[in-house]
């Protein structure tokens, strides 16, 4: 579990996060949602220690991420996996070498053991047999999967995904969501996903944190989204007239059943 306590972050005169206190649970996908500029990416970068908060604390189980020394911070980071928005795959390495890199750096496994683990990870994301291709030789959706495979290679306790389905077609986006959800449940890891994709919210949102202008304005799960009267949430999720009509119809049907 990851817990934040009254986190604030200021850049110059700009207060980006204003007192965020929340929890992200193990074994379920935790979504950070909000419109552009709400502070999602800053919160995610704070959670993984790339930014330091102006005030407040981030706990990984009972470890305060920002009070430990650099070596201990690296120890925590070795339990993290991260899928970046742009994948951050190393262009000069093949897919197999990309996935193998964390093992090369941190384990004493033999080449055979590492190759076997690479194959397992590629199989996990349904991408068998592309070890020798370079990232530029595979599609955007495949790159996302390779990014997930690399994030999972050291069996992390925490997985972070920054807009995992941005730039993907809706069908591939849903496949990526399902894959992340499946890996989270199967490995009982704490997954935090930064997204503004409505399909993700309604499909895998087991714990949703909504940010607006640096404030946490709503937290709940996908089943509560439809009924919630929180205006910011409704404006964000059901942004178009078409989606608002859909919501009204769904609510009518639900009330009729009740």
């Amino acid at each position: 579990m990851i817990r934040t306590e009254n986190i604030t972050k200021t850049f110059g005169d700009n207060d980006v996060l204003k007192g965020i206190s929340t929890e992200f649970y193990a074994g379920k996908p935790n979504l950070i949602i909000g419109s552009s500029g709400a502070g999602k990416t800053v919160l995610l970068k704070l959670l993984i220690g790339l930014f330091k908060p102006t005030s407040g604390k981030v706990y990984y189980d009972d470890v305060d991420l920002f009070s430990v020394d650099d070596d201990a911070l690296r120890e925590v980071r070795m339990k993290l996996g991260m899928l970046f928005q742009g994948n951050a795959l190393f262009d000069s390495m093949t897919v197999g070498e990309n996935i193998r890199f964390p093992m090369d750096m941190f384990t004493n496994r033999t080449l055979g053991e590492k190759e076997k683990r690479v194959d397992e990870c590629l199989e996990m994301v349904n991408m068998e047999g592309i070890n020798d291709r370079f990232p530029s030789e595979v599609s955007g959706g495949m790159q996302k999967r390779v990014g997930i495979a690399r994030a999972m290679v050291l069996e992390p306790k925490y997985l972070f995904c920054d807009e995992p389905n941005s730039g993907l077609d809706p069908k591939t986006a849903i496949l990526i969501d399902e894959l992340i959800c499946d890996l989270t449940n199967r490995n009982n890891i704490t997954t935090v996903i930064n997204t503004h994709d409505m399909n993700s919210v309604m499909g895998i949102g087991d714990n949703i944190v909504l940010l607006k202008d640096g404030h946490l304005v709503w937290q709940g799960d996908k089943s509560q989204v439809l009924e919630s009267e929180e205006a910011v949430l409704q404006d964000f999720i059901f942004a178009s007239p078409f989606l608002r009509r859909l919501r009204e119809d769904a609510l009518k049907q639900r009330h009729a059943h009740d």
Partner: peptide, 14 residues
């Protein structure tokens, strides 16, 4: 710029 350095930091690389 391509977040490769961030990716390595997250992995725990100095």
């Amino acid at each position: 710029q391509k977040e490769h350095i961030d990716a390595m930091e997250i992995m725990g690389v100095n």
